[in-house]
Structure formats: structure tokens, C-alpha cells
Nucleic acid binder design. Structure first.
Lengths: 222, 222
DNA sequence: TAGATTGTTAATCGATTAACAATC
DNA sequence: TAGATTGTTAATCGATTAACAATC
């Protein structure tokens, strides 16, 4: 793929487009198509932006018709590398980690085309070692390098407390993981070649609460 | 507050600044100060941007010195409305919802200055009704309008399956909630005056997986 | 063919950075 | 005072939108 250097803003929208196509692929017939107008509406972006985003990767549409749902869906899955299994390690099997592990594992087992696969769970609490969550055993953090190599793990999810997050991230990177989804309320500092996505729930709630007193007086129809 | 109309990009960074100040307030003395340079480094943004972001809300710094940690922290908490209790409803008490509810409730109980408070849990499964999670009972969705009014709920968290998300969001808005954090893999369409933050875990993972095959050949020191 | 919609270029808009006078 | 760092303006950069020729 000759992708010059696609901006992060573009990449961020691709999964949204894909999700819409996934839904249409189920609900509509096999040769449904949709315009950039329709896709934009459902994704909450302008039609021009949809066309520009997709054009970075090739010519997927037909003038006067739009985009073939199945074809574009397959293309996006390939672009996002979602056409093959992606193996994931999760570190920190507390409340949140446990819930995420179960949630994902079930999706993996029930949706044949869902290829994000949590194959290893790590925790520093010896009391948890050996315990299995839906068939995946909990392992000491120290075994991460070996497990990553052996199982071909490419992605890490961090659900440890904030204080431990940086150290766990370092351990992941040392083990060869370059893609990290961080749930801990901490800003990680990592080498440039590592991509970090943040999913900090408190930050999102705090951001929302900024808008609390906005426009409180205006009439609300109901 | 005479806030002209602060851009979303700015608001998004405020909680990051606040988190750093929270940490410093604990670890440093009570009259520590820090420069836009230091704050920027820790937050991962440029010093100029830190100064510009803060300047939207007032003059918090001293030339030649920087920002007083306590003072700026208090100011940011006020700007984000985090100085008073914010009551939250959570809809969908499955794996994820349960974990989030527990996680937040414990933070609320253990940190005296953490004012985000989940006070109601909703679910459509009659088998769950009446069950209590850390003291908060699970209630039928139909009681949402009354509960929101009675308990002064201002924010909603959605952790129901994707198919139910839009309907639950509508119900929240009808009940008077204007701030929604959505964990369901669905794009919600809601009135303009409602603010929605998205925390879609699969989307984040899919976004990361775009970078999978990047630069695989380059040498990694270890 | 006529109508619709793409892919793409140019114009606009907004956000970030650079630079510096003011001042602690 | 001299050094450091703010608040702010002007310059730059990048992302989105508008517009339209190409074409299904």
C-alpha cells in the first residue's frame, strides 16, 4: 500500500465508516450501494470529507451511483488490517480489565468476522495467577516478553492503576508491542514508533462537565 | 464566566492539565509552581498552546515564575464545574456497566475531591431490578424521568448494546439529561443542545490496528 | 441520453506555533 | 537589577469545505 502518510484525523474516521458498512451489509441486500452523502450523514461528517478520506486509499466509488457496500467494506477492513486475526494482551485484571476481557472475548467468539482476539491476561497479584477468564489464564507480568513472542501478540490493553501504567507500558514495549490502548488515567511517555490510544473515562466525564451550566435557561420541548 | 465560545479542542485538554496539577498538588509542597514549559511537557503539548489555552479563561500565571499549582488547580476545577457534586445515571448494567459503576463509585467514596457520583442504575432486565451495586439499586428504564428529576441527575452513561443505544439516549434526553457518555458502538443522533462524548472501545482498537504493519523492518533496540 | 455522484483542485476556515513586549 | 516566563499578536500549518469537470 503506497499510503503517503495519512493524517491521524483521517484514520480516526475509518472505523466509523466501517461500522456503518457493517450494519448495512447485514440489513441491506448483498449489492446495496450508498452515496458519500448517505455515509456522511450516518457518520456525522460532510459528504466531501467522506470522499476525500476514501480517496487517500484508492477509487472505490462509481460516478452517479456511489459506493458498493460490500466492496467498500472489504476494502476498509483490509486497510485497517482487520481481515486477519490480531492478538492482544491485557494487563491489569481488576474490575474494568475483567469486564473488557469478557466483553471482547464474547464478541470474538460470536462474530466470525471480529478478529480482535485477547489471548493473554497479565496481573501482578499472585492470588490471580492461573485463574482462567473464559479460557484465558492470568499470568505474571514477568512472563510478558515470552508470551508476546510465543503467541504473536501485537497489541496491548492497559487497565492497571495509574501509578503502574508507565511501568507496564514500558514492559509491553520491551516485549515488542507497538500498539497500546491505555485506560489508566496517566499520560504515557513512550518511544515514537509506539502508537498509544487513550480511553480515559474520567477525562471524558470531566470534559463533558465543562458544558454543565451551558444555556440552562433555554426552553426544552417535551 | 464571559467565555466567548471556547473551542472543543481547548476544552478537551483542560482535564489533562487538571490531572497533572492534581498529581503535583499531592507530591509537591503547597506552594509549588510550574511553567507552561513543564506543564506542556507532562501533557504532551507545546508550552505556547498551554498558555493560549489557559488565557481563554483568565490570567493565572506570573511572569518569570509560572503558574501556582494550587491556584491553577482550583481555577480549572471551577471552570470544569468539578467543584460541586455531579450526579450521574448509568443505563445498562451488563459486564461493562457494572465494572464502570463499581470503579467510579469506589473512586467517589475514597477521593474526597472526586465529585462525579453515579446515583442511579437502569436496566431493562426485570431479573436485575432491586439488586444493589455498592448501595445503588438497579431500576427499570421507565423510571428514568422521575429519578432524574428527583435526584438532580445531570449526566448519563450508556453501556447498553448498540441496538438499544439510540432509544436509551432519547429517553435520557426526554428526562432532561444533556450530557451523555456513550460506550455503545453506535453513532447517536440527538438534539444540538445535547453534548455526547464517545468511548467506543472497538473503534479505538480498530483505529490502532491501522498502524499494524508500519515500519516493521526497522531495528528495535532492547 | 439526462441525472447523479464521484475524485480532485482551489478556497476557506480554524488551530497551532513562533516571536516578543510586558513584567514579575 | 538580570533572568525568566507570561499573555498576546502575527505567521504558519493543516484540515475541512466548496465547486466542478469527468464519467457512470
Amino acid at each position: 500500500m503506497r499510503t503517503a502518510k495519512i493524517s491521524d484525523a483521517v484514520v480516526r474516521r475509518l472505523p466509523l465508516y466501517l461500522r456503518i458498512l457493517d450494519q448495512l451489509a447485514v440489513h441491506e441486500g448483498p449489492d446495496a450501494s450508498l452515496s458519500s452523502q448517505e455515509l456522511g450523514e450516518r457518520a456525522g461528517v460532510s459528504p466531501a470529507l467522506v470522499r476525500k478520506d476514501l480517496a487517500w486509499f484508492g477509487e472505490f466509488g462509481k460516478q452517479g451511483v456511489g459506493y458498493d457496500v460490500q466492496y467498500l467494506r472489504t476494502a476498509l477492513r483490509k486497510i485497517l488490517h482487520l481481515d486477519k486475526e490480531i492478538r492482544i494482551a491485557l494487563a491489569g485484571v481488576g474490575n474494568l480489565g475483567l469486564a473488557l476481557a469478557r466483553y471482547h472475548r464474547r464478541r470474538y467468539l460470536s462474530e466470525p468476522e471480529f478478529h480482535l482476539h485477547i489471548v493473554a491476561l497479565f496481573d501482578n497479584d499472585p492470588a490471580k495467577w492461573g485463574e482462567e477468564i473464559d479460557g484465558v489464564p492470568i499470568t505474571p507480568m514477568s512472563q510478558m516478553p515470552e508470551m508476546v513472542r510465543r503467541l504473536g501478540i501485537r497489541m496491548g490493553i492497559i487497565t492497571v492503576p495509574a501509578e503502574a501504567a508507565q511501568e507496564v507500558a514500558n514492559q509491553m514495549v520491551r516485549s515488542g508491542v507497538r500498539l497500546i490502548l491505555n485506560f489508566a488515567p496517566a499520560t504515557l511517555s513512550l518511544p515514537e514508533h509506539v502508537h498509544v490510544a487513550t480511553a480515559d473515562l474520567s477525562v471524558e466525564l470531566q470534559r463533558l462537565s465543562y458544558y454543565l451550566d451551558e444555556d440552562e435557561a433555554s426552553p426544552v420541548p417535551h
